[in-house]
Structures are given as C-alpha cells and as structure tokens.
Computed example of a mutant assay.
Amino acid sequence: MSQRKPPGVSRETWVDRQVREAAERGAFEGLSGAGKPLDDAVLGQSAGEWAVEWARREGADMTAALPPALALRREREELVAAVPGQPTEAAVRAAVELFNTRLDAAYRRPQEVPPVALAFVDVDRQLARWREAHPLGPEEPEAPAAAGPGRGGPGRPWWSRVRPRRRPRR
C-alpha cells in the first residue's frame, strides 16, 4: 500500500479496491499457502503469540521490539562477548564508550517499566580482556616505553602536564 487513502472515499471501499487491483496484477499468485485452509493452531493464537512464533520460525532479530532496558541489557551482553574479537584496542575503547554514552542517556530519560538497572561497562577491564586474547606477537611492535619523570610521565603532578613549562628568562 504505497498510496494514501483519498479524502471522501470510505476506508473499506479503498482497501477493497487495493486488494482487487493487486489480484489483477497477479500479486497473490504462486504463494505457498494459496488455496489451503488456515491452521487451527494459528487461528487460536493472539497477535503477540503469532508474532513471537513468526520471529522464531524466520530467525528474525526482535531486539527492536524489546523495551529499552532489556535491549540495553542484551546489547551489553553482546558487547562484552564481542570484545576479544575486536581488531584493535581503539575499537574496543570506542565500542565501550559508545555503549556507556547510550546507557547514560537512558538513565537521564524518565524511567519506563522495566527500569534501566545496568552497570556501565568498565573500559579498563574490557581492554585487559582484549589484551589477554591478543598477546603481542613477534611481528607486532612493542608498546612505547613510559616517559620519564622529566617528560610529562606519571612521575610529574597532573597540573604540570596540563600547563606548559615556562622557560626561565636570561
């Protein structure tokens, strides 16, 4: 049904015309259930039961039909399971930070039923899992050495790393 119902035409007349035109075009020819009676089990199902059965039979992804809290819970499980398969640490960090941003936005919205009750994904823990699954091989370069105390490394206080050093005047 790509057309809108014209004003002044009853809905039943318009739908009947759409069905008749589709039948004339042959849109209903060669369907798998053509000429067969409906199954009694299908007739006894509610619309929701039928939709669940159809999704199971067709292997459809029903994540979009889940309430936001359950969809986030499933997404979190899939994210944590997929961490070892990510190609780089940057990809792991980006995926975790994107999820945490979406979870934060869900917490800021008014709560629905069921409410969102998830912990944020710990970036450092997921990076450690990724590193465990991807040990450095001989072809991979070593990680750069940490800078010494005079080079902005961890030995200097944070405020000295934020502000550039002034050179003494001569």
Rank of each mutant, 00 (worst) to 15 (best):
residue 15 V to M: 05
residue 17 R to S: 15
residue 21 E to Y: 00
residue 17 R to P: 02
residue 28 F to E: 00
residue 14 W to T: 13
residue 37 P to G: 02
residue 24 E to V: 08
residue 15 V to Q: 08
residue 13 T to M: 10
residue 30 G to T: 10
residue 35 G to T: 09
residue 24 E to W: 00
residue 27 A to H: 09
residue 19 V to A: 01
residue 28 F to T: 07
residue 32 S to H: 04
residue 29 E to C: 05
residue 37 P to V: 07
residue 27 A to G: 10
residue 28 F to W: 05
residue 25 R to F: 03
residue 34 A to K: 08
residue 33 G to L: 12
residue 12 E to P: 00
residue 39 D to S: 14
residue 12 E to G: 03
residue 10 S to C: 14
residue 29 E to A: 14
residue 12 E to W: 00
residue 25 R to L: 11
residue 29 E to W: 00
residue 39 D to F: 03
residue 36 K to R: 13
residue 11 R to D: 07
residue 19 V to Y: 01
residue 13 T to L: 13
residue 10 S to T: 15
residue 25 R to H: 06
residue 36 K to A: 10
residue 13 T to W: 06
residue 15 V to H: 06
residue 20 R to F: 14
residue 25 R to S: 10
residue 28 F to V: 11
residue 10 S to A: 14
residue 18 Q to G: 12
residue 14 W to G: 07
residue 33 G to V: 10
residue 37 P to E: 03
residue 23 A to D: 02
residue 38 L to E: 07
residue 24 E to N: 02
residue 21 E to K: 10
residue 38 L to H: 01
residue 14 W to E: 06
residue 19 V to F: 01
residue 31 L to A: 11
residue 23 A to N: 00
residue 26 G to F: 09
residue 18 Q to N: 12
residue 11 R to W: 11
residue 35 G to Q: 06
residue 39 D to N: 07
residue 28 F to S: 05
residue 29 E to N: 05
residue 31 L to T: 13
residue 10 S to E: 08
residue 23 A to K: 08
residue 26 G to Y: 04
residue 11 R to Y: 14
residue 10 S to N: 09
residue 31 L to G: 13
residue 30 G to K: 04
residue 21 E to M: 08
residue 32 S to R: 14
residue 25 R to M: 06
residue 21 E to W: 03
residue 23 A to R: 13
residue 17 R to F: 02
residue 34 A to D: 05
residue 19 V to N: 00
residue 34 A to T: 11
residue 29 E to T: 12
residue 33 G to Q: 07
residue 18 Q to Y: 02
residue 29 E to I: 05
residue 14 W to H: 06
residue 11 R to S: 10
residue 11 R to E: 11
residue 37 P to H: 01
residue 23 A to W: 04
residue 30 G to V: 09
residue 12 E to H: 02
residue 17 R to Q: 15
residue 32 S to V: 12
residue 28 F to A: 06
residue 34 A to P: 03
residue 38 L to V: 15
residue 20 R to E: 15
